[in-house]
């Protein structure tokens, strides 16, 4: 599961939707195995579009749980048009590409901060199914 996906997943328990704590899920760094796939090509325009969809606070939070505390607290300000990207912008985007797209959690656990339910990531695939008493 790509690090970017952590930014898209909330708890599947419907009762947790009324809480603000059902997103992002909590990742226990020590239990998460990370791998990097350097073959995934960098496309600045594509990255720009993706960043528009990202909740930055959640990225910072999850990434620090996974053991990287170096992200700025506010979303980098980038031009909307890929043609206007400066060299510095490209470096930022490239780093985010490495972090969000090239890095995956292959094994791990994620926990809802509201209900405490734990979801597993096995063979890079997160399992968001629920037992009957939570469904």
């Amino acid at each position: 599961m790509k690090v970017l996906t952590t930014n898209f997943l909330k708890c599947s328990v419907k009762a947790c939707d009324v809480s603000n704590d059902n997103f992002p899920l909590q990742y226990e760094g020590a239990k998460c195995q990370l791998v990097q796939n350097e073959n995934i090509e960098f496309n600045p325009e594509f990255m720009l579009n993706i960043l528009e969809r990202v909740e930055w606070d959640a990225v910072v939070r999850v990434v620090s749980e996974l053991g990287n505390a170096g992200l700025p607290t506010t979303k980098p300000e980038l031009p909307a048009d890929a043609d206007q990207l400066s060299e510095e912008d490209i470096i930022i985007l490239r780093d985010l590409h490495t972090l969000l797209i090239q890095t995956s959690i292959t094994e791990g656990e994620m926990k809802c901060r509201n209900c405490g339910h734990i979801y597993f990531i096995k063979n890079s695939i997160p399992n968001l199914l629920l037992p009957p008493h939570l469904a």
């Binding site: 997943l9 695939i125 997160p126 968001l128």
Partner: peptide, 15 residues
């Protein structure tokens, strides 16, 4: 991006 093991009717894609 990914494929998720998930029941569509108990959806985890954040609102």
């Amino acid at each position: 991006l990914d494929v998720l093991t998930m029941d569509f009717t108990h959806n985890s894609l954040r609102t």
